[in-house]
Design a protein around this nucleic acid. Structure first.
Lengths: 205, 205
DNA sequence: CCCAGAGTTGACCGGGCAGTCAAGTACGCT
DNA sequence: AGCGTACTTGACTGCCCGGTCAACTCTGGG
């Protein structure tokens, strides 16, 4: 890899990645052949192997690019905010906006988790996201803003709510990112929120 | 399809489905060839096509079987319980036990969502699960047990928390199903805002 | 205008894949 | 024992896939 690219070459490479992203997302990674990709762009097969060592490398590159971009979007959005829960909220809102404009990445990541050759990379990315979230949760607990609890589990739950509502509401039903983000935040703050179950004592403060 | 099977035939068919389930989960659907499946069982290729019309049909069958079994496990567990939130809790606990003993199905369903040919079937199953959950949430709202809200979104959030903690805590970290279920229920009840329930009170009825 | 190297072509290759089938075997019933 | 049918075999087919490569074109710097 690490080939010297002119601006023209960099653009071609981008074209390939973008087209592949949409084809992979719509048809699946395996059912999409390299021939289909190059035909779709009206170029010869050699072009593909000029820019990528293999179909697999291309896919990994797409995932890496996506993760990096999402993380950057979150980081940019959180910017100057200092309160941990506010940072979390801003991060969730930014993620939702990002997923809204990069819908294909969602299904690609979901697929990548299901195959040994890609799963390890995904897990690494998820560890980073978890660590980021966990840090905020821990800070909020230390500050007494939220009650103590297992920060890992809670972080995973928060990420899970974001993820599933991104899939169902944002991508599935085309709802506005800001609205979905609000619903995520709302659920994460209060859960079902209501009275306790049948039995069992009320918590204290 | 709908071939007449002797007991011996039914057993062979089962062997194929179980072996395929584990191979698909470990290696991925596409990378697992029919030859690999029959070789793994030490039988000829014709055996496969005696019991299944195609590799695709086998996979769909696996998914259908799994969904049906999970739904039945939930239904059996909820049994006599009448209070909607208690039913929800019991259902979550049953699901967690089920996922614990059918770990392979999780990754198979996750994959199936990423490919057009399988996604529609998965979505149908998810609609059913959503409808079940939504009904309970709506009942709880009507009874005033929990505050009003969008029952669809809330149900999806509850299912999302279950799903993600099943993946990360149960399957990923090998935690006990009952513990993970408690954490799911806890988060769904209070989100970040409430104190964790010390020792979940056992159901009454 | 020339040339070095980036970019492109598409025929080609080896191989593995899903699926077929004619021939055979095991089994249950009478 | 004889027969129908459930079951099994594995060589075979046709297809398509990922990847290669020798030859070609384009482009910019000197």
């Amino acid at each position: 890899m690490a080939r010297q690219l002119t601006p023209r070459g960099a653009q071609r490479r981008n074209e390939l990645m973008e087209f592949a992203t949409s084809r992979f997302a719509e048809n699946g990674y395996h059912p999409t052949s390299v021939a289909e990709l190059v035909d779709g762009l009206g170029v010869g097969k050699g072009v593909f192997y000029w820019y990528f060592e293999s179909k697999e490398e291309l896919f990994i590159e797409i995932l890496r690019d996506g993760e990096r971009a999402l993380r950057r979007a979150q980081w940019d959005a959180m910017g100057d905010e200092t309160d941990p829960l506010a940072r979390l909220e801003v991060g969730i809102r930014a993620s939702m906006e990002w997923w809204n404009t990069h819908r294909n990445l969602y299904v690609l990541i979901e697929f990548a988790r299901t195959e040994a050759s890609f799963a390890s990379g995904i897990r690494k990315g998820e560890k980073v996201a978890l660590a980021d979230t966990q840090k905020l949760i821990q800070e909020a607990m230390d500050a007494g803003t939220i009650p103590d609890g297992n920060p890992v589990v809670i972080s995973q739950a928060v990420l899970g709510v974001s993820s599933v509502l991104a899939r169902t509401q944002l991508l599935g039903r085309g709802r506005a990112p800001a609205d979905v983000a609000s619903e995520v935040i709302d659920f994460c703050r209060h859960g079902l929120g209501g009275a306790p179950v049948p039995e069992q004592a009320q918590r204290s403060a």
